[in-house]
Amino acid sequence: NITAAIYDEIQQEMKRAKVSQALFAKVAANKSQGWLCELLRWKENPSPENRTLWENLCTIRRFLNLPQHERDVIY
C-alpha cells in the first residue's frame, strides 16, 4: 500500500545512504534524476488516476522494502 509517507521515505533513504537523486532514481526505478524530481513534486497533489505514477511508486516501495544492507550493496 502506497501512502504519502513514501515521499519522506525516499528523502530519508537518500540522506541515510548519502546518495544523489540521480543515483537513487537509477537503482530504485531505473529512471533519471529529472524523473525523480518530477515524481517528488507529485507529493503535493498525487493523482489517483495516474497509473504510471502509482506503478513507479510501487517499484520504489519494493526497493525500499529490501533490507538496508542489500540496498547499500546495490548503491
Rank of each mutant, 00 (worst) to 15 (best):
P48K: 02
F24R: 00
A5N: 11
K15Q: 13
L64I: 13
Q11C: 08
L57V: 04
E55C: 01
T52K: 11
L23M: 14
A25T: 05
L64Q: 03
N56G: 15
N45S: 09
N56A: 12
C58V: 14
D72L: 05
Y75F: 03
E38Y: 11
E38C: 05
A22E: 04
F63L: 06
K15R: 08
P67L: 03
R41K: 13
E38I: 08
N45C: 02
R61F: 05
D72G: 12
R16Y: 04
T3N: 15
P48W: 14
R16M: 10
V19T: 15
L57R: 00
N30F: 06
P67M: 04
K18S: 06
H69T: 06
R16N: 04
A22K: 09
I2M: 15
A28R: 00
H69E: 08
R51I: 09
S32K: 12
R41H: 01
T52A: 08
P46Q: 06
W42K: 13
S20Q: 13
K31H: 15
E9S: 13
G34P: 01
G34F: 10
C37W: 13
L53V: 14
V27G: 10
V19L: 11
H69F: 14
K43W: 10
A22Y: 15
L66D: 06
N30I: 09
S47T: 05
P67H: 03
R61Y: 13
A29F: 06
L40P: 01
Y7H: 04
A5W: 14
T3E: 11
E49Q: 08
W54E: 11
I60F: 05
E55N: 06
Y7V: 12
N1V: 09
R51F: 09
T3D: 04
A4E: 15
K18Y: 14
A22D: 04
R61P: 00
D72R: 05
K15N: 13
N50M: 10
L39E: 05
L53M: 06
A25L: 02
I60V: 09
I10W: 00
Q12Y: 09
R62E: 11
A25H: 01
I6S: 03
Y7N: 09
E38G: 14
V19W: 01
D8P: 06
I2S: 02
D8V: 12
S20K: 06
A5D: 15
T59G: 06
K26R: 12
R51Q: 11
S20R: 06
S20H: 00
F63V: 04
I60A: 06
K26A: 08
